[in-house]
């Protein structure tokens, strides 16, 4: 079975009111799920179970279908972003220089998968396309900090700086 969002849902009344207004404005409109999900992600930053349920109920679309849409499009996220957002470049240059191994190391170090967030809300991992720093390959970023020409063995020390 897949993992559910590890972080407890902390939606506010204001966010809920905003979402309800969005749902209301798309009611009875065909193909409303995608624009509503898009706006919901704008409101909450991600699309946890609780938000998907509200949308399913409000639009009268089965929850499984909503979940199917969310997992189909990479732009939709089931998990919130962490305080530190890690982006590992999987562009061609970085990939041939071993960024795949770096990604594996980061995943193992933090115990979460790509797209997920650690239970303490500190780190989230994304696999990105080319970020245009091929000369520094392999590259990964932590928020605005860029780490280039690194090896698997450097990962632990770099992450420690943010712990």
């Amino acid at each position: 079975m897949e993992k559910k969002t590890a972080l407890p849902f902390n939606g506010t009344k204001e966010q809920e009111a905003q979402l309800m207004a969005v749902i209301e404005s798309h009611k009875n409109q065909e193909g409303a799920a995608i624009p509503v999900l898009h706006k919901a992600q704008g409101i909450y930053g991600y699309l946890p179970l609780e938000v998907q349920q509200m949308i399913a109920e409000g639009l009268n679309v089965p929850l499984a279908e909503i979940y199917g849409i969310v997992t189909f499009y990479t732009q939709f996220s089931l998990y919130p972003k962490g305080e530190y957002q890690i982006g590992v470049c999987l562009g061609t240059a970085c990939y041939v220089k071993g960024s795949g191994d770096i990604l594996e190391k980061i995943k193992a170090q933090l115990g979460v998968d790509v797209g997920e967030c650690t239970p303490d809300g500190k780190f989230s991992i994304d696999a990105t396309r080319c970020i245009g720093a091929c000369g520094l390959a392999p590259v990964f970023t932590v928020n605005d900090d860029v780490y280039g020409r690194i090896g698997v063995d450097d990962v632990e020390d770099i992450l420690k700086k943010y712990m």
């Binding site: 499984a64 979940y67 199917g68 499009y73 990479t74």
Partner: peptide
């Protein structure tokens, strides 16, 4: 009932 759907990609 629609409790199953295609997920992921």
């Amino acid at each position: 009932i629609s409790v199953i759907s295609c997920v992921n990609r």
